[in-house]
């Protein structure tokens, strides 16, 4: 087995929440946005991260690139723990990890030309590059992601959403990163444009050998793209397995409920399909339920759920549920 490109061990992100009514010496309340997430990702693989809003997907991504303080370990392929590096040391790794953001237009500075936007990582990480080389490089990347290189002097507001996302992808690829983190890159786009952008990402992954962490709340998108899928709920891992297995045989009741909610583009099947409804709202992350965090909404909750669920492991299939191996049908 080859060495993983990136390995996260027990990553936790905790925010201190101060209420206005608190006195200065009251200890702040703690919000565990990401709680003990681990995964390892081999070069060329794609990890999909799914979960509903507020479950810590984006927080996890930001923690990996040190945009948020986190505890635990994030081991890069050369054995360094990214979380212990100083900002200056981290700079070396930033060019190898690039990110694509959710809102394509908002992630581009409206006062800069597309050429300047795409060249920004080059200016930061390859300061020795001449402006002519830089321009050449920007043009070739633009062509690579399906933009006309002669649009280099245009401004972001002159492009459509899909084109803006291509600009974002070009900016991420210009420094030839090894790992690409996509934070819901298609959820702000039309369905037809989504397909194009996902097609582009697939093509790039194949041609450039990219490793991708793909965050989405759309399961069908994740299924299409990922080798491995991780399901998050309230900042905790619910289930992690290789994509085919997870979609064919979901073991965690939460995953089962999520999958049953995916619409099937065939009215006949859609009518007969059984949806597992999840009742109630997401519990407050400030006061998560004791034991299994999902038990307040779980259709199969039992007394045993009040203790911490054990991580059931069958092959590579992790499930944080007591029921996972008991063959309970959905």
């Amino acid at each position: 087995m080859s060495r993983p490109l990136i390995e996260a061990r027990d990553v936790r992100v905790t925010f201190d929440i101060r209420r206005p009514s608190d006195l200065p010496w009251t200890p702040p309340a703690q919000l565990h946005a990401v709680n003990g997430v681990s995964f390892s990702l081999e070069p060329g693989q794609t990890l999909g991260i799914v979960g509903e809003s507020g479950c810590g997907k984006s927080t996890l991504a930001r923690a990996l690139i040190r945009m948020l303080p986190a505890s635990g370990q994030v081991i890069w392929e050369d054995g360094t723990d990214l979380l212990t590096l100083s900002p200056r040391q981290m700079l070396k790794y930033r060019s190898q990890i690039q990110m694509i953001f959710q809102d394509p237009l908002a992630s581009l500075n409206p006062r800069m030309t597309v050429g300047d936007i795409i060249a920004e990582p080059l200016r930061t990480h390859r300061p020795g590059m001449s402006s002519k080389e830089r321009k050449e490089k920007v043009r070739s990347v633009m062509e690579r992601v399906g933009l006309l290189p002669n649009q280099i002097n245009r401004y972001p507001h002159e492009f459509s959403g899909g084109q803006c996302q291509r600009i974002g992808i070009a900016r991420a690829l210009v420094v030839e990163p090894k790992l690409l983190i996509c934070d819901e890159p298609v959820s702000a786009l039309d369905v037809s444009i989504q397909a194009q952008v996902i097609g582009l990402l697939e093509e790039l992954r194949r041609d450039l050998g990219l490793t991708i962490i793909f965050i989405a709340h759309d399961l069908s998108v994740v299924k299409h793209l990922s080798d491995e899928v991780m399901v998050l709920y309230l900042g905790r891992m619910m289930e992690k397995a290789c994509s085919d297995e997870l979609f064919a045989d979901p073991r965690h009741p939460y995953t089962q409920a999520l999958l049953s909610a995916v619409p099937i583009p065939d009215p006949k099947i859609e009518k007969t399909k059984q949806v597992i409804p999840l009742e109630g709202d997401l519990p407050s992350p400030m006061a998560p339920p004791k034991g299994c965090v999902f038990r307040t909404r779980c259709p199969k909750t039992q007394a045993v759920c009040e203790t911490v669920p054990e991580d059931r492991l069958r092959g590579d299939h992790h499930t944080a549920c007591h029921l996972a191996d008991q063959g309970v049908e959905a």
Binding site: I65, M67, M90, L91, R94, S95, Q98, M99, F101, Q102, D103, A106, S107, L108, N109, P110, R111, M112, E120, P121, T124, H125, G168, R171
Partner: peptide, 24 residues
């Protein structure tokens, strides 16, 4: 988000202020 993007790229803070904040 574009400020966040610049921070993710690793652009130093004074440059972010000069290149991204001031023009806006």
């Amino acid at each position: 988000e574009y400020i966040e993007a610049a921070r993710a790229i690793g652009v130093p803070a004074p440059v972010i202020i000069r290149r991204h904040i001031l023009p806006n």
